[in-house]
Write a protein that binds this DNA or RNA. Structure first.
Lengths: 227, 227
DNA sequence: ATCCATAAAATCTTATCGATATTATTATCA
DNA sequence: TGATAATAATATCGATAAGATTTTATGGAT
């Protein structure tokens, strides 16, 4: 067996296109509703249509784009109904993730990172840096999914978080981030550390459900029907 | 707008390849571990590599096959660990599905179909027709996912059921189907009909968790490490 | 003389491209 | 308005280049 087999990433065009498009969708460079024919995208990325198309198929499977037969690829917009569907599932899945995390030995590095995120988030909240706080909120939830030890669960939570990523950002900006969110995060973290699986699981669940209510309120009061 | 817009399925080669391969994987014609280069598959399906490859990418996203760089496509085998991961998620998701179903007006047709499956399953059990019973068991669980009204939830449950489909079949054959499974199904159905969301949800959850224990036992006693 | 290690060659498979056939949509005209 | 032509974008193909794996040679060591 060759010596250096750990570093496998050999970056194919498909992977490139996939990563780039996904990043652009998540950070809003390609906003919801954006639509373009495959050849245009291929030209922009400097490759032929084939790898672009394969990347788009993957993105479609992850619920980030829609491939419309003669219309090209479209970045999906998220409606209130989508948010309801996704948050309901997330509530259960994050609850499960925390329960699993609390019931096992979570790697130290992960716990440290969580703790750092929490204190950095406190700081951001004090400084009123909502933008940064939103970023940390997102990272906290993604990291929690990593602590559960169930790879499929982690992947599914991550995928759902991706789908609501922009909606989260847009709407959190409208809201002054309530301190209660930060409190919940702390509670979840402590529950995992203390092995209190039932408490942690329930807090995670209701945390997400409360987030859904906030979302509903914000969406309705802002008059947006899609994000 | 054109008159007939409902019947959209215009069957492209990709869809064809996807449906056919998926069916062959689920029914075991392409057993776990089966592996073949793309050109072979393409020849067998009577089309060029492009649509086959696109279908394979979709199947990979659904966790049914693995695309190995210079080795071709491989039908994934399921290990005990995979089953644990999947059943744990299913327990939560099916619990949620039943809770949602019990809390809303489920279309009559669906309830009828569920009821028919239940009585047909009773009959199969009496006749000792395990094969048929296993089929009905599968259909029951898929149908339950359809009653929840959350399209994403339904899709996710379906995808997970697909991934464990063959494992379920293989292992159920080793087991004489315990009557308790049938009882649970009836309880879930009644809970949905009566709108008892908490009861239904909890039965669905523990039903799946009990299934996991059975699986563990069967896998260990049969000495199989993969299915 | 046989066997292992290494290097070179052959082979196999994918990754990617450019071209074409197909077909939905739009525009045009009676 | 309805039929027909033009357009545009995809769906699909066949070919090629790049890269990995396997096979085959080759040289030295026992």
């Amino acid at each position: 067996m060759p010596p250096a087999m750990l570093a496998k990433a050999k970056s194919t065009r498909v992977d490139n296109a996939y990563e780039r498009l996904k990043a652009e969708i998540l950070n809003g460079e390609l906003p919801p509703g954006f639509q373009a024919p495959e050849p245009d995208i291929a030209t922009r990325l400097g490759m032929s249509r084939t790898p672009v198309r394969e990347a788009l198929i993957r993105l479609e499977a992850e619920g980030l784009v829609d491939l419309i037969p003669r219309r090209g690829a479209k970045v999906l917009a998220i409606s209130l109904k989508d948010i309801c569907e996704i948050f309901e599932i997330l509530a259960e899945l994050e609850g499960l993730a925390v329960r699993k995390a609390a019931g096992r030995e979570v790697p130290c590095a992960l716990m440290h990172e969580l703790e750092e995120i929490l204190s950095e988030a406190d700081r951001a909240l004090l400084e009123g840096n909502i933008e940064h706080w939103a970023e940390l909120d997102d990272r906290f939830h993604r990291l929690i999914a990593q602590t559960c030890g169930n790879a499929r669960l982690e992947a599914e939570v991550t995928s759902l978080l991706n789908q609501v990523h922009r909606a989260n950002r847009v709407l959190l900006r409208l809201n002054r981030a309530p301190a209660s969110r930060a409190e919940d995060h702390r509670k979840i973290f402590e529950a995992i550390r203390a092995g209190r699986d039932d408490i942690g699981s329930e807090v995670a669940r209701s945390h997400r459900l409360a987030g859904l209510e906030t979302m509903k309120r914000l969406l309705q009061s802002s008059g947006l029907s899609q994000v």
